[in-house]
Amino acid sequence: MPDVHDPRGVLYPAKLPQFERILPPDDLADLVAWYWLVHWDIADGRTSRQQLLPFPLMNLVVQAPGVTLSGPTASASHRDLSGKGWAVAALLQPAAVSSLKVSPHELVGLEVDYDAPELLEPISRILNKGQGTASNQDCSTAYSAWLRESLPPPDANGLLANEFINYVSTTTNAINVEQSAIALGMSVRSLQRLSLRYIGLPPLAVIRRYRLQEAAQRIRENPSQSISEIAAELEYADQAHLATDFRKVLGFSPSSYRGHTSGNM
């Protein structure tokens, strides 16, 4: 089961505005990992940049003036917040792909409009009452009602793609595609096709994203642990390989990241 307290994904948690995750009802757990809800009120003339190392999944986001579908990302990303606003979103399980009838591979790095007025209207109505975070549960309930009404059950291959994400996200020593394929009882080629069809990224990219998220969390939360020790625990070949992944995806070194986060915890 997804953990709403999972600290991975956000590079600088101390900079988050009012943020909450809510698990979906059991009957929707195959479609949604969790709902995430954020409210912000930024002073005039200022912008708050939220730097992210996203989970390799799609997000269906409700935010005035409409609904958007964000595809998986191949690198770090950010959202700039200004003024006063809100967003209510679902972090989608891979199995939701068949229900939404979209191709995540075609959406990598993109955010596109999604025509869902029946989702936008009730959530906007709830939030326009001005109750802020007190309305989060009502928003998640309205989101769940729309999903039940609008999306058919996932197919068997989508559920298998969910298993792949669950395995990689909870197994810190999952380091290669062959290991994951064996764990799921499938061939490497079948796993590659499954990952591209339902996640939009090659399986190795998915594995590396979770390993890098885990590394960033440990670097951020364990300042007394050396980066070489973290690299060894996560079965990187050595510290240099971890540093290379950091620079390639995030644009800076693990030690620089630790320095940037040390004053924000």
Rank of each mutant, 00 (worst) to 15 (best):
Glu221Gln: 12
Arg148Cys: 05
Gln179Tyr: 08
Gln239Glu: 13
Glu221Asp: 12
Glu178Met: 08
Asp245Ser: 15
Tyr210Phe: 15
Leu212Gln: 05
Ser195Pro: 02
Pro154Met: 11
Gln239Arg: 14
Leu242Arg: 13
Pro254Tyr: 01
Gln239Cys: 04
Ser190Phe: 07
Leu234Phe: 00
Ser180Ile: 07
Leu196Pro: 01
Ser150Thr: 09
Ser224Glu: 15
Ala216Tyr: 02
Gly185Gln: 11
Asp238Thr: 07
Asn162Lys: 02
Ile165Cys: 00
Asn222Ala: 12
Lys248Pro: 00
Leu184Asp: 05
Glu233Arg: 11
Thr171Ser: 13
Glu233Thr: 07
Ala174Ser: 12
Arg193Pro: 08
Asn162His: 10
Leu160Gln: 15
Leu184Gln: 02
Gly251Leu: 12
Ser150Tyr: 01
Pro203Arg: 00
Ala216Ser: 13
His241Ala: 14
Arg189Ser: 12
Pro254Asp: 03
Thr141Tyr: 02
Ser144Lys: 01
Glu233Cys: 04
Leu201Val: 02
Gly251Asp: 08
Val188His: 06
Val168Phe: 03
Ala205Arg: 10
Ala240Lys: 14
Glu221Met: 11
Ser144Ile: 00
Pro203Trp: 04
Tyr143Glu: 04
Ser228Phe: 12
Leu242Gln: 10
Val188Leu: 11
Val206Glu: 09
Val188Arg: 13
Ala181Ser: 07
Ala243Phe: 01
Tyr210Gln: 00
Arg197Cys: 08
Arg193Cys: 05
Thr170Val: 07
Asn173Gly: 04
Asn176Ala: 01
Arg211His: 03
Leu159Val: 14
Asp245Ile: 12
Arg220Asp: 07
Asn176Arg: 02
Met186Tyr: 02
Pro223Asp: 11
Ile165Trp: 03
Ala161Gly: 06
Ala216Leu: 12
Leu191Ser: 09
Phe246Lys: 05
Ser187Met: 07
Arg220Ile: 09
Asn157Glu: 13
Asn222Gly: 09
Asn166Thr: 08
Gly158Ser: 11
Ala145Tyr: 08
Ala216Ile: 06
Asn166Ile: 02
Tyr198Pro: 01
Ile219Gln: 03
Leu201Met: 06
Ala243Arg: 09
Lys248Arg: 15
Asp238Gln: 12
Glu149His: 05
Ala174Ile: 01
Arg208Leu: 14
Ile199Thr: 03
Ile230Pro: 01
Ala240Met: 15
Ser226Thr: 14
Glu214Ile: 11
Gly200Thr: 04
Val177Met: 07
Ala174Phe: 02
Pro154Gly: 06
Ile219Tyr: 01
Leu204Cys: 00
Ile165Met: 01
Ser228Gln: 14
Gly200Tyr: 08
Tyr210His: 05
Gln217Tyr: 10
Ser224Cys: 10
Val177Gln: 08
Arg189Ala: 09
Arg209Ile: 04
Phe252Tyr: 14
Arg247Pro: 06
Gln217Asn: 13
Ser190Asp: 11
Arg209Thr: 15
Leu250Trp: 08
Tyr143Cys: 04
Val249Thr: 15
Pro223Gln: 10
Ala243Lys: 07
Asn162Tyr: 07
Pro203Met: 00
Leu234Asn: 03
Ile219Gly: 01
Thr141Phe: 02
